[in-house]
């Protein structure tokens, strides 16, 4: 509801943001699209002409492609499973009456604020190091041989590190959702004779449905592009080369821009598929 004068002022005030984001989105994306159809090796001859879909064919048929897809899926899937399941349990626990709730909350949320390079390094050296790491001490204490985490159990290690970073996010959102559940609903179910487990199954879980979906979608978008955790720990070796890392290596390490760009376009499409679902949920909420 407004008058004409305020409407034209509004359009003017929106312009800078729209133009900036439009530029930020379109210019690099078009360039990537352009490069993806070229043989382009900046250090070995530069622009070597159009090659059609060659880069795409080579990217998808390279021996590194499928392992990278699998690595990506394992990390995304593993982290999602851990964070959602433990997130729900933690959120329910934190919602219970207790002493020092505020402090516990702070403790649980803290990992989210640790920069990815720090958490990767701390886990890599101080916990997962086969000689001096805390895990090694722990294993020795129980008489077991220490594990070389980042080479023998590389995927598990990365999943642990990333899940530790994202568990607070899932917990916080699920806790917010649980707290918005009308306690009278639970009391009504109790009056109707539902035992605790049924109350969780029939009332709490359906109520959390949307929050869980949002957690899954947002985390998927961020997890698809995790970079620092791998960059600092394994540098993509021992089967931890994700799609993002593979593209990064093609573009900046082997300087095969055409090939990397084809992969980049693939990553954009992949992220957009997830984004569409997220947008639909966010969009519905806008109307409310």
């Amino acid at each position: 509801m407004a008058t004409k004068a305020s409407r034209s002022a509004a359009r003017l005030m929106m312009a800078p943001a729209v133009i900036l984001l439009l530029g930020w989105m379109l210019v690099p994306l078009c360039m990537t699209l352009y490069f993806s159809f070229k043989k382009y090796l900046p250090l070995r001859g530069g622009d070597l002409g159009w090659v059609g879909f060659d880069n795409y064919v080579r990217f998808f048929s390279s021996s590194a492609f499928w392992p990278s897809v699998i690595a990506t899926l394992v990390i995304v899937g593993g982290v999602l499973a851990i964070t959602v399941v433990f997130g729900i349990l933690l959120a329910i626990l934190l919602d219970q009456p207790m002493w020092g709730q505020g402090i516990v909350r702070i403790l649980v949320i803290a990992p989210f604020f640790v920069m990815p390079t720090v958490s990767a390094l701390v886990w890599k050296n101080m916990f997962m190091d086969p000689v001096n790491g805390l895990f090694a001490h722990l294993w020795k204490f129980f008489g077991a041989a220490p594990i070389e985490w980042l080479s023998q159990a590389s995927m598990t290690s990365i999943v642990i590190i990333v899940a530790w970073q994202w568990l607070p996010f899932a917990t916080l959102i699920l806790l917010t959702a649980i707290q918005s559940l009308d306690s009278e609903q639970l009391e009504a179910a109790e009056m109707d004779g539902a035992p605790p487990l049924s109350r969780f199954g029939y009332i709490t879980l359906p109520h959390l449905n949307r929050a869980i979906t949002v957690v899954v979608l947002i985390q998927t978008i961020f997890l698809l592009s995790i970079f620092a955790e791998i960059f600092v720990t394994t540098q993509g070796s021992f089967g931890t080369k994700t799609l993002t890392y593979l593209i990064y290596q093609r573009v900046l390490e082997s300087q095969n821009v055409g090939l990397g760009s084809a992969g980049g376009i693939f990553a954009v499409i992949l992220a957009n598929i997830v984004a569409i679902f997220l947008m639909r949920i966010v969009g519905k909420n806008l109307d409310a």
């Binding site: 994306l29 978008i221 970079f227 954009v268 992220a271 969009g283």
Partner: peptide
């Protein structure tokens, strides 16, 4: 405060730019 019919679409579009994977536009 001055929403128009397109406000919702603009907001969603802005969000969508956030979901662009960085590695896809790294080289440009």
């Amino acid at each position: 405060f001055v929403p128009s019919a397109r406000t919702k679409d603009i907001l969603l579009w802005m969000l969508s730019t956030k979901m662009l994977p960085a590695v896809g536009v790294l080289y440009p």
